[in-house]
């Protein structure tokens, strides 16, 4: 290596080093800001009393919680919504712990729109691409003849339990709210 070549390489090297001074933090800045602090484990959230659920009726309930949006933290925000279905055959109005309540995420697994109750109240439909689901979250064939169901999987069922409050004697519906990745044919936790 002669003197000229050496100087060429030194120049190139220094230019790269200077570019790195801005470039590397630049990349890190873009990626780093997106790493949201995950709120530890998702926990069960108390939603409502069992007796407030009309059997057989599809009820949408917002799940409230703390929401961190970049530099703003707000409490008591809607972090998601669930559809609750109380089995129609449960007879007692008082809401004994035996009665079954099913919780479904309101997020359509196709593109992430909010599924709605179809006219008639016996099934769900996503307003975006008309994917329809039964009360158990299972995919149904399209509303019109020949329509395919575009959803890659059934509606996501969430862990749901009934808890008796010994003080008041009320039975509460509690749901572990989680988000699952959309567009996949299997469930993967994560937005």
């Amino acid at each position: 290596m002669n003197r000229r070549e050496l100087l060429e390489w030194v120049s190139r090297g220094l230019a790269t080093a200077v570019a790195m001074v801005v470039g590397l933090p630049g990349v890190n800045y873009f990626l780093g800001g997106t790493q949201q602090k995950r709120s530890s484990e998702s926990q069960f959230t108390r939603l409502l009393k069992v007796k407030d659920l009309v059997p057989g009726r599809l009820t949408m309930v917002p799940v409230m919680g703390q929401k961190v949006d970049a530099w703003i933290q707000s409490d008591q925000q809607t972090i998601g919504r669930v559809w609750l279905v109380r089995e129609a055959d449960s007879s007692s109005e008082t809401g004994s712990a035996k009665q079954t309540v099913r919780a479904l995420s309101s997020i359509c697994p196709h593109m992430g729109c909010q599924v709605q109750v179809q006219t008639g109240g016996k099934s769900f439909v996503c307003p975006c691409h008309r994917a329809s689901f039964g009360v158990a979250g299972q995919r149904l064939s399209g509303p019109k003849n020949g329509d395919r169901n575009i959803a890659p999987r059934d509606l996501d069922e969430l862990e749901c339990r009934l808890v008796r409050d010994d003080e008041t004697g009320d039975n509460w519906v509690e749901v572990k709210y989680e988000k699952f990745k959309i567009g996949l044919d299997r469930r993967v936790v994560g937005a």
Binding site: F30, L31, G33, T34, Q36, D69, A70, W71, I72, K179, G190, A191
Partner: peptide, 13 residues
């Protein structure tokens, strides 16, 4: 998607 949204969800970022 995460780069565009600045996270997992739509927000200030």
């Amino acid at each position: 998607r995460r780069l565009l949204f600045g996270g997992e969800d739509i927000g200030s970022l």
